[in-house]
Structures are given as C-alpha cells and as structure tokens.
C-alpha cells in the first residue's frame, strides 16, 4: 500500500520539471534584476550608522530596568493590548455577519448566491487591500487625533479579512454534514448554526487568535499616527537616543505575542476538549 502510493507520488511529481525550472528562473531572475536596479551611488550605511549599531548592540547588555521605566513599559503594553482588543471587537462585528454573507450559505438558489458572493467579495476585497496603517492615516485625516481612529484602523480591514476567511471556512463544511441536516428538514439557518459553525469552530478560533496576534502588532505601531502604546514609547526612546530603553519595549512586545500564542493554544484545547 505505502510503496504503491509512494511510487504514484513520484510519477505525479516527476513529469513537470519545466514548470518548476521556469518558476525558479523567474523568481531568482526577479530578485537579481531588483538588486541590479538599485541606485548604489550612495553608501548603504550612513555616517555614524556603525556607531549607532554598536550603541544599539551595547545597550542590549545594559537595558534600562529602573522601576519607573518598567511601569511605563507595562502601561504602554496595556494600551497596545487594549487597542488590539477594541479593534478586534469591531472586526468581529463586521466580519461574522460578513462571513455569512460572503459564504452565501443562507441564500437559496445558485444565481442569488453568486450575486451575493461577487458583491460582498468586491467590497471586502477593496477594504482588505490596504494595510491597517494606511487606514490609520486615512482615519486620522478624517477624525483627527482620537483613539476611535486607531480602533477603526484595525477594525475595518480586519473585519473584511475575517469576512473572507471565515466565509471560506463556512463554505467548506463537509457535504455529508450538510446533507444529513438537510435531509432531516433543517432550514438554511439551522444548517449554519448546527452544521457549518460547529464543524468549523476549531479553525475559526484558531484564525481569530492569529488575527488578534496581528492586531497586537498593528496596535504597537499606531504611534505612527500619534496614538499611545509600545510604538509611541519606542519612538520617544529613539528620538532621545535612549537605546537602553529600546530593548525592554521590544521584549514586552515579544513576550506579549508569546503569551497570546500560549493562551490561544490553551483556549482552543478547552473549546475542543
């Protein structure tokens, strides 16, 4: 059994070397061309750059761990997490109904489903195309400096992404489950609640956790439009050449992401146990 399947795999993968060679040539060629296209008249490292790098490296060994600064780090971390949570709630409010619409599972008839899917995919595709910080700049221009700009900057693009990805999870429910429910007289709505959602729940939670991690990273750089958090403190430290304050802030961000990793894995297990 295993030997035949292995032999079959060999036969399947073997006969397309040309496509793969072409791909390798394309990718490596694009990279080399991009390098050759660079303007190299200026030096890559600017004056004093090496000293700055050395100071950054040295400060890694002597970070500022004074209690006053650690309180600042803790506060910045809490602000960043809170922005991420607030942004994610907006994203979920947009994304979960969006996912149901994108997947078209509640609509009857093939044509109605195609129309709903194309319309919503187009809209959400446009919202999704822009990075959250570009949204942050736009909301800053619209609303001025307010936390609402930061929340919406995370919530709007992430909501659109959730709609697409979760919509695909809902669509991909195994046919047997859906047919079993349908043959026992379930409505479309019951099909969704008792069939598609439970089957996809593990994937949905995993994806939400991943997006939350991304939201934390995005929230950390909202300082870019003048909002608080880890990035804001990092900016201050860099402007004052306080390199010893850079590393504790980066450590807080890395630790935060690690904690989310562990908690999300545990939550997933609790939900699935």
């Amino acid at each position: 059994m295993s030997s035949t399947s292995q032999r079959r795999r060999l036969v399947v993968t073997r006969p397309r070397p040309t496509a793969r060679t072409a791909l390798s040539v394309l990718l490596i060629g694009a990279f080399v061309l991009a390098f050759l296209g660079l303007d190299t008249t200026d030096d890559l490292i600017h004056q004093g750059g090496l000293q700055a790098a050395a100071r950054l490296a040295r400060s890694l060994l002597a970070p500022d761990l004074s209690p006053e600064f650690l309180v600042i780090v803790l506060d910045a971390t809490l602000v960043t997490v809170s922005y991420a949570v607030a942004g994610m709630t907006v994203a979920i409010v947009i994304g979960i109904p969006g996912a149901v619409i994108v997947s078209g599972v509640l609509v009857r008839g093939r044509r109605a489903r195609a129309v709903s899917s194309v319309l919503s995919r187009g809209t959400f595709g446009f919202l999704r195309a822009m990075h959250e910080l570009v949204w942050a700049l736009l909301f800053l221009a619209i609303l001025g400096l307010t936390p609402v700009a930061g929340i919406l900057a995370i919530g709007v693009p992430y909501g659109a992404t959730l709609a697409r990805v979760l919509g695909e999870h809902l669509q991909n429910a195994p046919k047997e489950v859906i047919l079993a429910l349908r043959s026992s007289g379930a409505s479309r709505w019951q099909e969704l609640v008792y069939g598609r959602v439970p089957v996809a729940s593990g994937d949905i939670v995993a994806y939400l956790a991943y997006r939350f991690e991304c939201a934390v990273r995005a929230a950390a750089v909202l300082s870019f439009i003048g909002l608080g958090g880890i990035g804001y403190r990092l900016n201050l430290a860099l402007h004052d050449f306080r390199f010893d304050r850079v590393w504790p802030l980066i450590a807080a961000l890395v630790g935060l992401i690690a904690i989310i990793d562990v908690v999300s894995a545990r939550t997933r297990r609790t939900l699935q146990a």
């Binding site: 303007d39 030096d43 750059g49 990035g231 990092l234 860099l238």
Partner: peptide
C-alpha cells in the same frame, strides 16, 4: 525567528534608519 516575527516591519524600519541610509534597500 520568534523575535523577528513578533516585531512589526515598521518597528524594524524605525531601528534600521538609525544605521542604514533611508531608501529602497533599507
């Protein structure tokens, strides 16, 4: 790998412009 991916691109950029000349390669 974990540290590299936990820190967003923008923060890497903020650190890098202290060492490298701003531009495409940085």
């Amino acid at each position: 790998h974990a540290v590299l991916r936990s820190v967003p691109e923008l923060i890497w950029a903020m650190l890098i412009v202290f060492v490298l000349r701003p531009g495409i390669l940085a």
